[in-house]
Amino acid sequence: MTALAHVPTGSGQSAPPPASRRGRYRLLPYLLLLPGTAWLFLFFALPLLQLAAASLYDPSGSLSTGYAMTWAFSNYWDAFQAYWPHFVRSFVYSAIALVLALLMGYPLAYGIAQKAGRWKNLLLVCVVAPMFTSFLVRTLAWKTILSDNGWLVGLLRDVHLLGPDGRLLATPVAVVLGLTYNFLPFLVLPLYASLERLDYRLLEAASDLYASPLRAFRRVTLPLSMPGMIAGTLLFFIPATGDYINAELLGTPNEYMIGNVIDSAFLVRLDYPQGAALSFLLMAAILAIVFVYLRKAGTEEVL
């Protein structure tokens, strides 16, 4: 099979199959691709192009006079200079949230996949259930949980983890907690999928060969769960970095992330070139991080 795949198309050394047979099937893969491609073209490629063009408009244009295309690449540098702290903040927050989510999500996924027995499906539903309510409602619920006069802050004050005037709401802690919570299922589900296929006999074999449980985990379980972990971290990290709801509802202006800036550029300040430039900078930064990460993590199967 592998050898056949390398046979050059069209005329080769081997005789081509009858033309009628080939002709019938040759276009099939492309036809099957057509709906998806058309969809992507209309709702992804075209808007992206439009955005790319907008990021190069003359920044002195305005809504009423319109924007002239001046290939103003300086938009990118200006936008970066004005808002680089927000970029840094976005990546730092979502990185911390990712670590927290891994610490909670890995044991959770492992437990469900390997130890839950007949409760497996119920537990999975519990992981997914919060998604039945809106993202906004879930984030607003955190406002109540973290409220200055709520039980959590009261408890933390009693044990002196927070000063008498300390608070959780409107701090970076609240934003990171919100990010962790909101995107946790995206990490847990792919992890679960790869841990579920884990062959328990491999762990038995490891212990037969005198591996300690820790070592067996490090040498067997962890490598086998890598595809799920990589997919999960990407699914977690990418939307978390671009998120603006958590920062807006649980944070203050000092916690605003790059998503908040883009939102305000498009909707409030009506600075379309800057908003577009910031969007592309964010995409580029995330792409760069993802590529480096995939190189390091070394799995080809994800891309």
Partner: peptide, 20 residues
């Protein structure tokens, strides 16, 4: 094809009209 589109698109995307 993306590169092709990009060229075509940017050539066409020469600014927007005023909203006035």
């Amino acid at each position: 094809s993306a590169a092709l589109l990009a060229t075509a698109g940017t050539l066409a995307g020469c600014g927007t009209k005023g909203a006035q």
